[in-house]
Design a protein around this nucleic acid. Structure first.
Lengths: 236, 236
DNA sequence: CTATTTAGAGTCAGTACGACTATATCATCC
DNA sequence: GGATGATATAGTCGTACTGACTCTAAATAG
């Protein structure tokens, strides 16, 4: 990244990539190898090219900086941040993106990043630029969308158990949910939230003890009806 | 607006200003006086200055192009649109804003606009650039936020009746609501949606017939609990 | 075979909802 | 000045959904 020419804007994208690792919500951060904020942790991202769509730029940066080949997860625009002083190099307006994926590969450091790693969402360091705020907005968006969309399935791989799906909610909301009630809500959603996935790996390495659970796949629904609301959303 | 320099971005804001006039949802549009799209209707908006915050630019353009002195209504960021071909003059990334206000003054044409007027949301002409999509996104956002926020009060002036508030919902959702049920929902919301406003103008010009209604003001709540859901949100 | 563990079904009382019905309070018109 | 028309506001009722539980099923470990 070079300095922006006077009287012109630089437009960048910054991605809040979330996943579930070890039953915790984690955020991918990159350690900056160059000034400003050299040595600080920051969101993966970078300049948008002159002939490039914003979404395409987000996908490209996601791949370049994290070593993810062909990002398959969910990607959506979050908000745009453009206070004049947010980047000491000049006027940089950045479009924040929210990306979600299951816990698959380990990210690799990319071009101008000295290091890259997952950080638990509740143990984040102080970030470069205004990235703290972007991360906060991204996590809040994820929490909210779990309520009325089927986005939770973006965090787990193809055949999954309802326990896994419930753990997505529990990790992101930070509260325990009652398995029986969660099950009822997921299975009674009208356009189907999940559909049964044959008996894919029914008898396998046995990760846990107890009765084996049925496997499901994402159903046709995108919006959840009725919604699955988080307990104590502030009132009630 | 001049052409953007090569290898640099222009950043602009475009505002979807909504109000309720004659019991219909209406959008403020400006007729472009200069190319490109000369003579077409477009959203009010313009370039963000180099030392200016995005929100400030939206407020400024709102005032400059619509003659509104000190915009008092609701203003929030919508989304950012940045496909490379969206503006023939060069690479222009625009941040869309949603603004809401009661039906107060009549807008005046501003600087580079040949004309300005309100258009009913369901009778819009074809718009310049990708403004059709921005308007659609703005209206959808407004529809959605009526459900779980108290944003409807942004469309009516200080002491209002529940009938007026209900008409906001009816106009924006395009469906009739049952007065009694609407009343129950509004009045039982826990952090208060509305509070009684003494007897401000209780006996006045009498706009309608029938028993006069009590007057209310916006209450302390921002989020609505429980939400007021639109009928048939697609399923059920 | 028994203990243990998790999956999944079922129960019950409280809350919110849609659809109505009934009553109250105005202005106006004979 | 009482009847009429119109709207505001209160109340009723059956259905749906929820949270908090309890109970049964199906597996493994010893």
């Amino acid at each position: 990244m070079s300095a922006a020419a006077p009287d012109a804007f630089t437009v960048s994208v910054d991605i809040v990539l979330l996943t579930l690792r070890e039953e915790r919500l984690q955020v991918l951060l990159i350690r900056r190898g160059i000034p400003p904020f050299e040595g600080w942790w920051a969101l993966p991202g970078g300049r948008v090219r002159m002939d490039e769509d914003l979404d395409a730029a987000a996908r490209r940066e996601l791949q370049e900086e994290t070593g993810v080949e062909r990002f398959e997860g969910h990607l959506e625009q979050l908000a745009t941040y453009g206070t004049p002083e947010r980047d000491p190099r000049g006027r940089v307006v950045t479009v924040g993106y929210l990306a979600l994926m299951p816990d698959l590969p380990v990210p690799v450091a990319g071009t101008d990043a000295a290091d890259a790693r997952w950080w638990p969402a509740d143990e984040l360091p102080s970030l470069a630029f205004d990235h703290d705020r972007i991360v906060a907005d991204g996590i809040e968006r994820a929490k909210a969308k779990l309520e009325y969309t089927t986005l939770a399935t973006a965090f787990v791989e193809a055949p999954f158990t309802l326990r896994q799906l419930r753990q997505v909610y529990e990790a992101i909301w930070g509260v325990p949910l009652q398995p029986a009630n969660f099950r009822r809500k997921v299975l009674t959603a009208d356009p189907r939230f999940v559909v049964e996935a044959g008996e894919t790996p029914p008898r396998s390495p046995r990760e846990d003890r107890g009765r084996p659970a049925a496997r499901f796949r994402p159903g046709p629904a995108t919006l959840l009806h009725p919604p699955i609301l988080r307990p104590e959303p502030g009132r009630r």
